[in-house]
Nucleic acid binder design. Structure first.
Lengths: 212, 212
DNA sequence: CGACACATGTAACACGTTACATGATTTG
DNA sequence: CAAATCATGTAACGTGTTACATGTGTCG
């Protein structure tokens, strides 16, 4: 719902038409997130259908501006007032990938981790490079924060990858013979067996963090 | 593309049918990400259409298992071998929200930040609570890492929010009194989550890794 | 029997992306 | 004039979600 609400927020500043909205959206995020123009129009159509915006008469230049309605303002206020919940976010593809890599035969998890780490570090360098020219205007503040958001996320990813590597090493050290024989090709029909495996005690290491 | 490749990875272990795939997917991620069953079937249909999986004869119980094809194995290997690029990920709704809040009239950015911070901290506590029961099996390793991935992301988010608040304060101070105060107290009102404000790029020891 | 878990599917919709078609205006 | 930019839209597809329809098997 980010684009939907984003357009609504831009219309709160005053009537805008499609092309203008895209330009303004990309400008406040510093061009980091290019916005598809087709989606602007379809989203505007849906917003109008839902009564959150209203089309204004077409101007001479062929522009078709929209304005926000009271219902739209209410919706926008609600968006700003309520936090974004964890469940609303998409699945993290990287986490899925690593979790599945762990139990997929013939996959070198360590190299998956390393490959990702290299790529993310490259991204990180690119981001810090972008952060170079940086005056202190209010609009620049916006896209600088957006950039830094990506930096923080990327840094967290690298830390997590390092943590994964450490966990993998610890696990490998614990099971001296990596003999669990990967997946069992066996499986009678209709057995969704939970497959209860051995449970080794895990010594609590530095994994107790930031809960306060 | 996460579900598509996820199912492919599960099928690499051996033939599975739809229901089994969902159960297995949710199990390896610890039920953190419930997988819609309808999507499993449509995704399987698309995978079959693309020649990455092949349907096996229906068993007695009415199950319709699929097996991975060589093309599917190739695709999967490619997935594991290539990093997930930044551009492939969706726009961060929170960053958009804050960037737009900055230039939208009548929006109290500080309270938006605070609301989100509270919500994320609650999520963080919930996550660490979930991490309680934790044996050291290989499958448990997977979902523990998934959980910790979310923890790392949430921590990064809180740090970023604190950083935003500090930036806002700095900006407000600059606007009200045009004379830039040189030595301002760096951090915002509260920093419950420790860890660096500095980028890990500043630490030369870390950056030299992984570039093989 | 009836409720529930298992199992497969379809339909409809929201959102996002890419590509294409169509004009108007500006500019080299 | 030709090309680029501005501006609006449509079509098709992928992905994800929700809801519904349809069966079978099991168990109290």
């Amino acid at each position: 719902m980010s684009v939907r609400h984003g357009l609504l927020a831009l219309l709160e500043r005053g009537p805008r038409y499609g092309y203008q909205l895209r330009a303004e959206f990309e400008r406040t995020t510093g061009g980091t997130w290019p916005l598809n123009i087709g989606q602007v129009y379809t989203t505007l159509a849906r917003l109008e259908r839902d009564g959150l915006v209203r089309a204004l008469p077409e101007s001479d230049g062929g522009q078709r501006p929209y304005e926000i309605t009271p219902a739209g303002r209410a919706e926008l206020a609600l968006w700003f007032a309520s936090p974004i919940e964890r469940g609303d976010r998409p699945r993290d593809e990287l986490a899925i990938k690593l979790a599945l890599a762990l139990t997929t035969p013939g996959v070198d998890v360590r190299s998956v981790v390393q490959t990702q780490r290299t790529a993310t570090m490259r991204t990180l360098q690119e981001l810090t490079r972008l952060k170079g020219s940086d005056p202190g205007g209010r609009e620049d503040l916006a896209w600088r924060l957006v950039l830094e958001s990506m930096v923080f996320q990327a840094e967290a990813e690298v830390r997590w990858l390092d943590h994964c590597e450490a966990s993998l090493a610890r696990f490998a050290a614990k099971s001296t013979s990596p003999s669990p024989a990967a997946g069992e090709p066996d499986h009678g029909p209709q057995s969704t067996v939970p497959e209860p495996e051995e449970s080794i005690l895990d010594e609590p290491t530095e994994t107790t963090r930031g809960t306060r």
